[in-house]
Amino acid sequence: MSLWSRLRGLFGGRDAKRRLKIPILGVEACGKSSLILTLGQFVSLHDMGRISMSSGSLFGELLSHVAAGRPLPASARWEKFELHIHRVPEPGGGHSPVDMTLSSEDIPGKQFRDLMDELRVNPDLSTWKAGPTKQILERFTQLLSSCDGFIFIVDLVRNKRAEIAAGAKEPIWTAFADQIKPIMTGILLASKMNAVMAHKPIFFVFSKPDLHLLEPEEVREHFRRAMAIPLAQLRGELINVGQYNVQCAGWEMDSALDGMGIDILLSDLVHAVNAVPDGAP
């Protein structure tokens, strides 16, 4: 958050228009582009906002693949997109007025995977040597320190679909360990070096509920148990993990491309970054 936006927030009140930068992270083929597309569709269909002009081409490209019945292609570059949102759904029903621009980036999962592999092997960032992975790390660090929160997408059924369907719990914990633990370690280390990380909400979104067939509460409980130690560490670093929301976003595309759980995710996201003005229902 820039100094100007801080001053504007101080003197202009909380109803001033806000620009939120919330990157979406996750390994390749976990559903980042799907979430972006679904967010855009959800906001547009329910008259909650609109896609910015600059992001129109990205959404158009993604929609063309869905319309043709093709899977979304892997993201090859860092795609920026923006959503102008003027109201958000409330958990108890109704809507709250907001005036904000949700800015995010679709980051290639391959780069994220490379970064996590490196973090897993060598969690001490200070000892990293110059190279392509270091460059990605620097870019990620810059992104994380300049954003207002993060969305992490976790693919629970990555290569373990049959085992999870058979009721085994260990693959779920392994997915947490493989996909979340390295980046949590990275966040903890980054927070040691950069205090800007504090008080930022982190959202963990678990994709593909149609494949892992677990109830949201079950996923939430597994996550709380498997990640108990790093979650407590994040709380100790004043990173706002109390606001994270574990929801199955539900990428089961119906005709309207209206994802499940998007409303709750959007509502919690907006509330977590205090974008809802005072006095709103």
Binding site: R224, A228, I229, Q233, R235, G236
Partner: peptide
């Protein structure tokens, strides 16, 4: 302890 938020590792 972490799960119950009684301690931090």
């Amino acid at each position: 302890g972490s799960y119950l938020q009684r301690l931090q590792v």
